[in-house]
Design a protein around this nucleic acid. Structure first.
Lengths: 230, 230
DNA sequence: CAAAAACGAGAGCAGTGCTCTTGCATCGGC
DNA sequence: GCCGATGCAAGAGCACTGCTCTCGTTTTTG
């Protein structure tokens, strides 16, 4: 089989892990644009050309780091998630976990939600990891809609086809209007996080934690989650 | 003094403009990370070291491009702005202008609203240009609040100090709750634009124009703007 | 007119991603 | 156990990059 095949295979996974670890350290310290293959190799005591045996290009190394970052963020969000709480509280908790992770890993956040690296397009392998937070938010909305449906303004005619298509794709058991609001809230959440992280709130918002909690609370209302018991 | 004296000063402005023009072209074509001083100089038929007489570093050239990008975006938004329309319609128009500009200038949008270039912090000179769209949105909200105040949920106690501080800073004539909603909507607008531009909506949102118009319409509602006549 | 400042050109330094070749260690089939 | 195929590290090298310094030349200024 593949696992026990000698010391060679074992060494390969160890070196691969060491490269990613060192690369992640440089990424956290300096940012994606300053991540240098040669510096990683130098720090690991190997020569730069040897590193290409493990990652055929710098972009491939970046892709691995991107997937790891998505997974780390998804894990944080899922870990903060208390399934016993009310949907509204769970929404707030997940949003705060996303913000907290972003503040703890600014460069990794920038890597996945900031400007894409030029000449680089994320391969499809990143999609599942990238979807984790979204799926979590969909799950919360789904639980909330088990109860009585809040009155939601009727769907405008021109939005209806797209809303129904999105609902069919993402959450067939939810009303199309709720799914549309959910996707918008999902994007808007990252607007709030990104503005804080990238300095756009400098000299504008001071008490960012409180501001954020209220903003995502209003986002939750838009999705149909209600505070209070239940 | 430095101004207007002789052919040297004139040449300096011309060369500076040519550098920025060529740099902007490369920026649009390849993205900020691939913007190369040497390539700009080569294209202009000068040697790379000569370019340092005009921009002391690559970051200084980037700063100039950032300011230009903010101004270009601000101009687009202000140009699309029809002062005769209703505040709600004006809000939608400005948001759509921001989105349109972003789709037309993706790399420049990424430069100002994407990940900050590592090791680079925007100097204060960018602030006025960066504030233009925000000021435009504030103006729309101000006009809307000339009329009867819509009923808005009371400010939560923990948010009140920050909300009042923001209102005092940004729009003393607006209720603190409206200013808070406005700042949040401002950030959320860029979440919507960024997600579309950076590919997060791939395989999720198809009819992005319609989706966007409705999402920013709901944003407007949150700020207290109402559709229909008025 | 002479001193000073601005300028273009070139060489050079340290760094980058990436490729190619050269030996050596390990592995699988006989 | 041997032997050819494969995996791997090392080094040299290419074409770049940002940036600095020096050296004449030109323009501006006092």
């Amino acid at each position: 089989m593949s696992t026990a095949h000698g010391a060679r295979a074992r060494a390969r996974i160890e070196v691969t892990a060491a490269i990613k670890e060192e690369a992640r350290r440089q990424l956290a310290a300096e940012g994606a644009a300053r991540l240098s293959l040669r510096a990683v190799a130098r720090e690991l005591g190997m020569v730069s050309s040897a590193l290409y045996r493990y990652f055929p290009s710098r972009d491939d190394l970046l892709t691995a780091l991107i997937i790891d970052a998505y997974d780390s963020l998804g894990e944080s969000a899922e870990g903060a998630h208390d399934a016993a709480a009310s949907p509204f509280e769970r929404w707030i908790t997940v949003c705060e976990a996303v913000r907290g992770w972003a503040l703890d890993h600014p460069h990794e956040y920038a890597l996945i939600y900031g400007s894409p690296v030029p000449g680089y397009t994320a391969p499809d392998t990143t999609v599942p990891a990238a979807a984790r937070v979204g799926l979590l938010l969909i799950g919360i909305a789904r639980d909330a809609h088990q109860g009585p449906a809040p009155d939601r303004p009727a769907l405008a005619d021109d939005l209806r086809p797209e809303a129904e298509r999105m609902a069919a794709d993402l959450a067939p058991d939810l009303p199309p209007g709720a799914v549309t609001a959910l996707v918008a809230a999902w994007a808007q959440l990252y607007g709030l996080v990104g503005f804080e992280l990238f300095g756009q709130f400098n000299r504008v918002v001071e008490d960012r934690e409180t501001f954020f909690r209220h903003a995502v609370g209003r986002l939750a209302l838009g999705v149909g989650l209600v505070p209070g018991p239940g």
